[in-house]
Design a protein around this nucleic acid. Structure first.
Lengths: 328, 328
DNA sequence: ATGAAAGCGCTAACAG
DNA sequence: CTGTTAGCGCTTTCAT
């Protein structure tokens, strides 16, 4: 920086001023400064800047590298933060790097607030570490902590799926659940409630699953062994639905002619043209937006009470659902 | 930090010393310092530390958030860097954030070297920006730049696939290419060369594609319209292979009985239990390791000439390949 | 519109 | 083993 200042023949303070776009420099000086900076490859030092400013302007984001939905959130988080005058610092949780390390890094960077995506998010063990830093968990709420949370109403999502099927004329609707997986309970509950609300409690059928393709495959075989197939199946997630679809196809069951199938997540999988799966989407853009919003409200708006944002999922109707062959 | 020092009743220098694990503090002091730090939630300020040390210890990684293979690399990059005494800083390229911004951030953090994953990696336009910082591009080489590169030999990968099929007794082997997509040319070339080497130039059949499932679907229909099906197909990538598989299934063609199918990438898709696709893997772990290694060689080893690492892909044989029904 | 000087939180070199 | 001191690159008053 001293270098740039010398080149232009001004003080370092002026160069600083130009670089952060503050007032107090003539148009001409500005240009000369930028030109000189380009020439000697100068770029402001973020560390020095934040040290002096006593603010980092960073929003730390903890996410799981291998999770595609987390990637979608990361994608959406940048514009949301920039729009509010903050910068994003990423910290990945990997097989070899736990949440504690990821959060530690972010805190070392003096992130002003933390957005933690993922289900073991900010376990109690971590809470004291974060003390004093606003944080929001995405995907789950952590009762007993002072953190904000943003999540999607899974029960409602499944309800929408069931409603859609019932409206198409289905009555015999089964559910493959996610066992003890995160949010599987909520989805199962949504299914049960929706069936009851339509007076179909007699038709409730929950098959065991675990969100894997294999569980979809197993469910397909289980269903085919029975006297009669249900006319529709709501799978616990897309992966399970895809396994189910593939097996039905191999077993000669027409979809959606004989059986309609609904997934959950609207993952890449569901969008594949040959899969074309009807599914339930949690809006990554909206989720990221709400999470960043919550942090900024604490940072700039002075909010102190915890906040729990519950988002509405959206049913995406594609090609795997239709009226039952023998509409009642 | 002053706070911690006061609590323990020592100087700030001593606290610093304890925190970076340097010699010169008694075991007892160490413990007291750590305890006091935990009590008042102290954690060293990374920015201040690197400012003073005049080294950041950061290796900057630019990757595309939405690309699953990039995610695998990110996953592998952490241990590779830590093992060599460096820390990783991530910077994502997204729909709303280009490579220039991503690299700029990393440079602002004073990353000591850059690893850029992705195909438009470090375009000439970016090169001057990076001047002076060691950099490695992953997935492609940029001739005319001083950067190192790490990539996989795609032609060799396809060659392995063809060899495997020929060894199983196939002679009529078609290829669905990736059109103008990255590395499609190399894969196509590998196919042609391998066929020729086996004296099968008469059997060379290249169907147009573009790495999408749709192109696999189209290829399936195209093949079925012909007089006779090939006994094997090497798809340009896994997505294309999956589209192909699904269509063949719907058209009543048995895989691998009538037609064997090979993909490319060993993506999640290929590993799905019901897909179980024979494919070619580029080893993310090895790639990340080589890239980090290249950077550290420049940083600590004083290497200055550019280096181009070409990795060997690996054929993963799964369930979609087998001997042709009428082995010759 | 521009410059001088102080200091952010930390570490390194040296003195005790 | 422990304390003192200076200063990293930047921003921010406060003068000019």
């Amino acid at each position: 920086m001293a270098d740039v200042a010398a080149r232009v023949g001004v003080s370092r303070a002026l160069v600083s001023l130009v670089f952060r776009g503050a007032e107090g420099a003539s148009q001409e000086t500005r240009e000369r400064v930028f030109r000189a900076a380009a020439e000697c490859g100068y770029q402001p030092d973020t560390a020095a800047r934040m040290l002096r400013r006593r603010r980092s302007g960073f929003l730390g984001v903890v996410y799981t590298a291998s999770d595609p939905f987390h990637a979608e959130l990361v994608e959406a988080v940048y514009p949301a933060a920039e729009q509010r005058g903050y910068n994003v610092v990423l910290s990945a949780v990997t097989a070899a790097r736990d949440e504690r390390e990821a959060v530690g890094d972010l805190l070392g960077f003096r992130s002003e607030a933390l957005m933690v995506i993922g289900h073991r998010a900010l376990s109690e063990e971590l809470a004291p570490l974060v003390a004093g830093t606003p944080a929001v968990t995405v995907g789950a709420r952590l009762p007993g902590t002072p953190f904000d949370s943003v999540r999607t109403n899974d029960a409602q999502g499944v309800r929408q799926a069931v409603d859609h099927l019932v409206e198409s004329g289905h009555r015999s609707i089964a559910h493959i659940d996610g066992g003890s997986m995160l949010s599987a309970a909520a989805r199962r509950r949504g299914y049960r409630e929706a069936m009851r609300r339509h007076g179909l409690q007699e038709e409730i059928t929950v098959l065991p699953g675990d969100y894997s393709e294999d569980s979809g495959v197993r469910a397909a075989h289980e269903l085919c062994r029975r006297d009669r197939l249900p006319t529709a199946v709501v799978a616990g997630n897309d992966r399970c639905a895809v396994g189910l679809l593939d097996s039905l196809l191999r077993l000669g069951v027409d979809v959606p002619g004989e059986v309609s199938v609904v997934g959950y997540d609207d993952s890449q999988l569901a969008r594949l043209s040959h899969v074309d799966l009807t599914t339930v989407r949690q809006d990554a853009g909206q989720t990221a937006e709400s999470a960043i919003q919550a942090l900024v409200e604490r940072l700039d708006g002075g909010r102190t009470e915890a906040k729990d944002v519950v988002l509405r999922p959206e049913l995406i109707v594609r090609g795997t659902t239709g009226p039952p062959r023998t509409a009642s």
